[in-house]
Design a protein around this nucleic acid. Structure first.
Lengths: 154, 154
DNA sequence: CCTTGACTTCGAGCGCACTCGAAGCCCTAC
DNA sequence: GTAGGGCTTCGAGTGCGCTCGAAGTCAAGG
């Protein structure tokens, strides 16, 4: 239950706000198929998310992936980082709806940080509640396991 | 992450193995509508599970609820305790399949405690892994929240 | 030129765990 | 006797989050 404020995997967390030029230098309007961009298959491999799911995420508005002239997707660090952050949120069972809401805010540009914060904090508190419930349920299971040693007299 | 061996809500945990006469006195073949048995609506209220879901659980073999002469279900402490334990397992996201497997073992009577134990222990270890992942994801979110204070220099 | 293969879109399908609704039965109260 | 309410079964529907397959496009290699 410790709350680490050390960047858990810093490069991925930092990158997520770089798009929509939230602050600092504007995004460089990368040339499709630019420096380190990856085609969908490699993006899938790198993020551990299937290509199908990457397209699905884009369909539902979680991503906006640049294309080359032939319409093929090229994932830059920006998109890859976002995908990773999405998987983190999903891992905590944040409903897709809320993930959508969050990235709608991000994509709306700067000025709504308070809202993003509120959304994340609400979610964090839900996750913490679930952690506690989960731990309690685990305790029940542990108790059950323990009693299988000395059955019939729990 | 502490493992409590104090019965988390003892009455409910203890009761779950009493059926199928796993040890000690055989189940007393209670008269339908016996001492403290409840009709489905009250069982639902007591366990926090809808009547629909209680019937569903029975349909898929998780429960075997005694009936009165008119075919109505009467939930005794045995069934109520089992329902509660099911909800604990479900709370930890144990797939219904595995819950079914577990109670098949329980219903098969004594002699397979090692298998039950193995099933629970496997699940426990999965849950613990998930707890760790969940905590890590929460740390990412916490980090994100923290950086919303001093945007642009995480 | 033709094949190969990775990509594209679109819509449909799937697995899970419920959740609901229709039609009917049974008991009690009036 | 009859109205009401709570129960029964059964099968179908729902919501979520993917997951898949068909059919087509495009670029590179032989």
């Amino acid at each position: 239950m410790t709350v680490a404020l050390v960047p858990p995997s810093a490069d991925l967390v930092e990158a997520e706000d770089r798009d929509s030029a939230s602050c600092g230098a504007p995004a460089p309007t990368l040339p499709p198929n630019g420096p380190q961009s990856l085609p969908i298959a490699e993006a899938a491999e790198r993020t551990g998310v299937t290509a199908h799911t990457l397209r699905y995420y884009e369909r539902i508005g979680l991503l906006d992936v640049p294309r080359d002239h032939a319409g093929r997707r090229w994932y830059t660090e920006t998109e890859l980082a976002r995908v990773v952050f999405i998987t983190r949120l999903r891992l905590t069972a944040m409903p897709i709806r809320n993930v959508q809401a969050y990235f709608r805010l991000v994509d709306a540009g700067p000025g709504n940080e308070a809202e993003r914060l509120a959304l994340l904090e609400r979610h964090r508190s839900e996750v913490k509640d679930r952690l506690i419930e989960l731990q309690a349920a685990l305790d029940v299971i542990d108790f059950k396991i323990a009693t299988y040693g000395g059955m019939c007299d729990p």
